[in-house]
Amino acid sequence: MLNFLSTWWGASSSTPTPEPAKFDPTDPRQNPLNPQGLKPCCACPQTKSARDDCFLKHDSSEADEKCKDVVQAHIACMRGYGFKV
């Protein structure tokens, strides 16, 4: 009876269920948005540089507000490559 119930519920111990593959945004087979397989550090160099320059140029108290647009542009670029930001 127990064997019947475990088979019915799909809890058979003879065939373990495989774990789903973890999404890797740098794997072109999993992420068609990133065909070159770029890592986050190498994606979007133009917006990354503009973001970094903005934060270096402005005082920390005003950087959040003044750099908001360049940060949003960098986030949009990263998401365009399939990175979860």
Rank of each mutant, 00 (worst) to 15 (best):
M1T: 10
N3G: 12
N3V: 12
N3H: 06
F4T: 13
F4H: 11
F4K: 15
S6K: 11
T7I: 04
T7P: 00
W8D: 08
W8Q: 15
W8I: 09
S12K: 11
S12E: 12
S12P: 10
T15K: 13
T15P: 05
E19F: 07
E19I: 11
A21C: 01
A21T: 13
F23D: 09
D24E: 07
P25E: 04
D27M: 05
D27V: 08
D27G: 10
D27N: 15
P28R: 02
P32W: 02
N34K: 05
N34R: 05
P35Y: 06
G37K: 00
K39G: 07
P40S: 04
C41S: 13
C44Q: 02
C44L: 09
C44A: 12
P45V: 06
P45M: 06
Q46D: 15
T47L: 07
T47Y: 02
A50I: 00
D52M: 08
D52A: 14
D53H: 08
C54N: 03
F55H: 09
K57C: 02
K57Y: 04
H58R: 04
D59S: 13
S60D: 11
S61Y: 01
A63G: 00
D64L: 11
D64Y: 08
K66G: 03
K68Q: 12
D69W: 02
V70H: 01
V70T: 10
Q72N: 12
A73H: 03
H74L: 11
I75E: 03
A76G: 12
C77Y: 03
F83E: 05
